[in-house]
């Protein structure tokens, strides 16, 4: 496991929050995913060792919670809310517009490796539907115009990254 020193110290700190080490399973998975981008195979026995539990105890958690992913995804993760209030306000159109912008389908990595688009369930911002979570940032009332703006921004940031 090749984790950043900051991740390792966060891991040691968070374990102290609980009387039982096993409770730190979700926090450790979050920290590792934030560092590496996904949960690699080797992370499972590593966490198990760290928390003095069995690898199956970690594996069953990884496979239960939708936010943990076993495979790498695009650099940016676009999560479009699929649930009723957003769908009523055009969430499916929003998702399709993103797919078209990045020439990809939900659940896949775009051909340039830049984005992964996913449908997710209710993001608890139903009053500003349709909503989209891009990495950590929530975007509200994402209609066709806003999809265009957000996509342009992502493409611009990609171009800047490639230049530098």
């Amino acid at each position: 496991m090749n984790l950043k020193p900051a991740t390792l110290s966060s891991i040691d700190e968070v374990i102290t929050h609980y009387p039982s080490k096993r409770s730190a399973t979700l926090p450790l998975l979050h920290l590792i995913q934030e560092d590496i981008g996904h949960i690699p195979e080797e992370a499972i026995p590593w966490i198990a060792g760290k928390l003095e539990i069995q690898p199956i105890n970690v594996y069953e958690v990884v496979s239960f919670y939708p936010m943990f992913r076993r495979q790498p995804i695009g650099r940016r993760h676009i999560k479009v809310c699929r649930t009723l209030s957003c769908a009523l306000m055009g969430g499916y159109k929003t998702c399709a517009a993103f797919e078209q912008e990045f020439n990809t389908h939900r659940g896949e990595v775009s051909p340039d490796g830049e984005v992964t688009i996913d449908f997710v369930e209710c993001l608890a911002s139903c009053g500003t539907a349709p909503v989209v979570l891009i990495d950590d940032d929530l975007h509200e009332k994402v209609d066709a115009t806003k999809v265009k703006q957000l996509s342009e921004q992502i493409k611009k940031e990609k171009a800047e990254r490639l230049k530098s």
Partner: peptide, 10 residues
């Protein structure tokens, strides 16, 4: 008080 984050399960 500590914060504990969930991971997408209703």
């Amino acid at each position: 008080i500590f914060i504990h984050r969930g991971a997408g399960a209703y």
